[in-house]
Computed example of a mutant assay.
Amino acid sequence: MNLPEVIKNLIKAQNAHNPEDYAACFAETAVVHDEGKTHRGKVEIRQWNQHSNQEYQTSLKPQDYDQTKRGDLLTAEVSGDFPGSPAILKFHLTLDNNLISSLKITG
């Protein structure tokens, strides 16, 4: 599977439970939508990831990656301390200048 470098870095940071490296994958004005909440900017994204790591200890295992005109789509097996683990989730991404500007996580 041919993943962009920033997506490789995102997965590596998540699997290491490193919120600083995770947030570094995003543009300053990036937006993340997950579990009905919106997180704007690197500071909020780092805080969201840190909280998520503490609560769920999730790790990502990429299953598929598609680049389309509407954006990129990473399908990953997500495992951790949550009901229904592992789960297959979709990461809808917009990349700009080798950084993530938008991420929406869906089931």
Rank of each mutant, 00 (worst) to 15 (best):
G41H: 09
E55A: 10
S101Y: 01
N97C: 07
H33G: 05
F82C: 03
L103G: 11
L10I: 06
G41K: 13
K12D: 13
H39T: 10
A23V: 08
E20L: 05
L10K: 15
K104D: 11
N15R: 05
N9K: 15
A76K: 12
E35P: 01
E5H: 15
E44G: 05
D34N: 15
S52R: 11
D96N: 10
I105E: 06
S52E: 02
A24F: 03
M1P: 15
G84Q: 05
S101I: 02
L73G: 13
D21H: 05
I11G: 04
S59T: 03
L89E: 11
T58D: 01
F82N: 04
Q47S: 02
C25K: 11
I105L: 08
S52D: 05
I11S: 04
S79R: 04
C25H: 09
C25M: 11
G80E: 00
D72N: 13
F26V: 13
T58E: 02
P86W: 00
V32W: 15
V43I: 13
I88F: 01
L3S: 03
N15I: 01
A23Y: 08
V32D: 12
L99E: 10
T58N: 02
D81Q: 11
E77F: 03
F91R: 11
S101R: 13
I7V: 15
H17E: 05
D64C: 08
Q54M: 06
S101L: 01
Y65H: 12
P62N: 12
A13F: 01
L103V: 02
D81I: 08
Q47D: 07
N97F: 02
Y56I: 03
L103R: 07
P4H: 08
T29M: 04
N97M: 12
C25R: 13
L60Q: 08
K12G: 08
S102Q: 08
L103M: 12
A16S: 14
H92C: 06
N9Y: 02
I105C: 07
G71T: 10
